[in-house]
Structures are given as C-alpha cells and as structure tokens.
Simulated scan of single mutants.
Amino acid sequence: MSRRAELAAGLAAVRERVAGACAEAGRDVDEVTLVVVTKFFPASDVCLLADLGVTDVGENRHQEAQAKAEECADLGLRWHFIGGLQSNKAAAVAAYSSVVESVDRAKLVGPLARGAAGREQPMDVLLQVSLDPPGREGRAGVDPDDLGALASRVEQEQDLRLRGLMAVAPLGEDPATAFARLAEVRAAFVAEHPAATWLSAGMSGDLEHAVRLGATHVRIGSAVLGSRPTGK
C-alpha cells in the first residue's frame, strides 16, 4: 500500500469515528475540526495530508514545527502549536502558528503577542487547563481557578484572540470522567468569555468521549499516521 493510501485509510477511519460520536451526541459533524498531529513524521506526509483534504496540522516541538511550516508554506495549512512552550521561544512559535493551544501562564502572553504582531488577523490562542489533581508531577496546564486571570491577560493583546480551552485527559483516569469535568469548566469559562467557544480535547484513544462532551477540535496522530517512526 502506498503512503498516500495509508494516510487516506487512516483519515477515513478517524472521520468515521468522529461522525459516529457526533451522531450519538446529536451534533453536526462540521462542528468538529480534525487537527492531525504530525510530530516526528516528515513534511512529505504533511503534503499528502493536505492533498487529502486536511486543513489543520499540529506540532509540539518548535524546531520541527518551524521547519515543516516553512517547507509547506504554499499549502494554506493552519498550524497548531500544541506542546509545552518556553517563553524564550514563544515569539518564534507565533511567527508561523495560526493557533497556539498550550498557553498556560501569563509569562507567555507578551512574547506571543510580539511574535504575532503585524499579521492581518490576530493569532488564535487556547488556554491549556489542567485536569490533573494539584501536586501531580509533570502537571501541565493552568489550574481552573486561575483561568480568569490568564484569559484577561490574553484579551489585553490586540494581536491575540482568545478562542477557548485545551486539555489532555490525565493518565490513568477514565477519559469520560475527565472530559465531563472539563465540560463543566468550559461552561463556566464561556459564560464569562462568550466568544471563546473552542474546546480542543481528545486524541486517538479517547476522541469519542471528547466529542460527546463538546470538543470542537480533536488532536489525532497515530490513528491517522500510524506508529511513530523508529528511533524517535
């Protein structure tokens, strides 16, 4: 099977899963954007995905993302940065990203705004909210109680546009339970920020739970691209 055929089969299977979850939840399938995470995969795969109708691509390492964005600049893709972000790299990430999904502290906001300055449209920002219990090692994301202050900081920047929230289901927890908790956090957040309706949640193993509980974006890697290349 050619690589294009492999990717086409993976995309078809994922789109069928999304459609099934939307049907169960009484949602329109057009409400959910598929973000294909191409970490460790070559730019040639990105080109094939674009040819197969993919419009949104996710990366979580700056150097790799920057190189692919430059190589695929003529494809009209929306690049989502979804990884942990260092403040000294935030401006560089903003220079090529359409969306940064992993904003979890105020220190990132100024550099992101500087990197996004001068573009025709503001850069879209999602706040990464933690679903882990306090004190867990490696915990990523802002505490739900601190979302309001971080959102206000983003809204101060004219070159950034607050779009919503992003989260990852904690390891070892039923994703349905985690995403139900996220849905409550999101409802309270949207009540305060009515335009920030995006919710990025769900990956290859748990996308159905996320879609049923309101995800507008799902971040899918292995279910489309297969296992990561060896040596990574």
Results as ranks from 00 to 15, higher is better:
Ser2Asp: 15
Ser2Leu: 14
Arg3Met: 14
Arg4Tyr: 07
Glu6Asp: 15
Glu6His: 15
Glu6Phe: 15
Leu7His: 12
Leu7Ser: 12
Gly10Pro: 12
Gly10Phe: 09
Leu11Pro: 04
Ala13Tyr: 12
Arg15Phe: 12
Val18Leu: 13
Ala23Trp: 01
Asp28Gln: 13
Val29Ala: 15
Glu31His: 08
Thr33Asn: 07
Val35Met: 04
Val36Ile: 14
Val37Met: 05
Thr38Leu: 03
Phe40Gly: 01
Val46Arg: 03
Asp56Pro: 08
Glu59Val: 13
Glu59Gln: 14
Glu59Gly: 12
Asn60Pro: 10
Glu71Phe: 03
Gly76Arg: 07
Leu77Ala: 09
His80Pro: 02
Gln86Arg: 11
Ser87Gln: 07
Ser87Thr: 10
Lys89His: 08
Val93Asp: 00
Val93Arg: 00
Ala95Leu: 06
Tyr96Cys: 08
Val100Ser: 01
Glu101Val: 03
Val103Asp: 02
Leu108Cys: 01
Val109Ala: 04
Gly110Tyr: 05
Leu112Thr: 03
Gly115Ile: 07
Ala116Glu: 01
Gly118Phe: 14
Gly118Lys: 14
Gly118Glu: 15
Glu120Val: 15
Glu120Trp: 13
Gln121Val: 11
Leu127Pro: 00
Leu127Met: 05
Gln128Gly: 05
Gln128Tyr: 04
Leu131Trp: 04
Leu131Asn: 02
Asp132Phe: 05
Pro134Gly: 09
Glu137Gly: 11
Val142Phe: 08
Asp143Tyr: 07
Asp143Cys: 10
Pro144Phe: 08
Asp145Ala: 15
Leu150Phe: 06
Arg153Glu: 13
Arg153Ser: 09
Glu155Trp: 04
Gln158Ala: 13
Arg161Thr: 02
Leu162Phe: 09
Arg163Val: 00
Leu165Ile: 00
Glu173Gly: 13
Glu173Ser: 14
Thr177Met: 12
Ala178Ile: 09
Phe189Glu: 04
Phe189Ala: 02
Glu192Tyr: 09
Glu192Leu: 13
His193Gln: 05
Ser200Ile: 01
Met203Leu: 10
Asp206Lys: 04
Leu207His: 05
Glu208Gln: 06
His217Ala: 00
Ile220Lys: 01
Ala223Tyr: 11
Gly226Asp: 15
Ser227Lys: 15
Ser227Cys: 15
Arg228Ala: 11
Thr230Glu: 15
Thr230Cys: 11
